[in-house]
């Protein structure tokens, strides 16, 4: 018995048909295929996508918080240690580590590192750097079509294609993984 694995990309004309197809998967119309396996490609993000695909994690805010905390800590310690070591400058009775000016600079560091951590985490978490890209891709996704990607085996391959066709899929692209 062959045990091939397939990856298919179904291209739909709009969100409605694509979501109905996913909804059918969610309702277990194709046994062995779970909604958690579905990946969607679209020209924009649908506002109600979570109702269909379910809550999926986006961990960027955690890195943002880490970046902001790092910015505050590093910013203040950097300035304070520089000031504490800079005894060449006459202080004239003023504090060696002046809080008012350090607050301004620490604030800027908070934002700078918050932004840097946010962006770097976005690039990694969304797979833009170091991530695996979808091998099945259609330029039409950048125009006006919605792509649904699934990885299937021999048992689920044909039923899933039939489901896609039932929902007026415009085109199905596929490849054999192994």
């Amino acid at each position: 018995m062959s045990n091939k694995k397939y990856r298919i990309l179904g291209l739909f004309s709009d969100f409605e048909e694509a979501f109905l197809a996913i909804n059918d998967i969610k309702l277990n119309r194709v046994p062995g295929v779970s909604v958690d396996d579905v990946r969607l490609m679209s020209p924009i993000e649908h506002p109600e996508i979570e109702e269909i695909l379910g809550e999926r994690p986006a961990h960027v805010p955690k890195f943002t918080l880490a970046g902001a905390c790092f910015g505050i800590t590093f910013g203040f310690l950097f300035l304070a240690s520089a000031q504490a070591n800079f005894l060449v400058q006459p202080q004239g009775g003023k504090p060696v580590v002046p809080l008012p000016s350090n607050i301004v600079l620490t604030y800027e560091m908070l934002i700078l590192f918050g932004v840097i951590f946010t962006v770097v985490s976005f690039l990694f978490l969304s797979g833009l750097i170091g991530g695996k890209k979808e091998r099945l891709y259609s330029e039409k996704v950048g125009v006006d079509q919605i792509g649904v990607i699934l990885e299937l085996d021999d048992h689920t391959y044909e039923p899933t294609k039939a489901l896609f066709k039932q929902h007026k899929v415009l085109e199905i692209r596929e490849e054999v993984i192994k």
């Binding site: 990946r39 969607l40 490609m41 679209s42 020209p43 924009i44 993000e45 996508i49 695909l53 999926r56 986006a58 960027v60 976005f122 978490l125 969304s126 797979g127 833009l128 890209k133 979808e134 891709y137 996704v141 950048g142 990607i149």
Partner: peptide, 10 residues
């Protein structure tokens, strides 16, 4: 590629 993961993080 406009995947749901990319849009979500974006």
């Amino acid at each position: 590629q406009g995947t749901d993961r990319q849009w979500r993080n974006f």
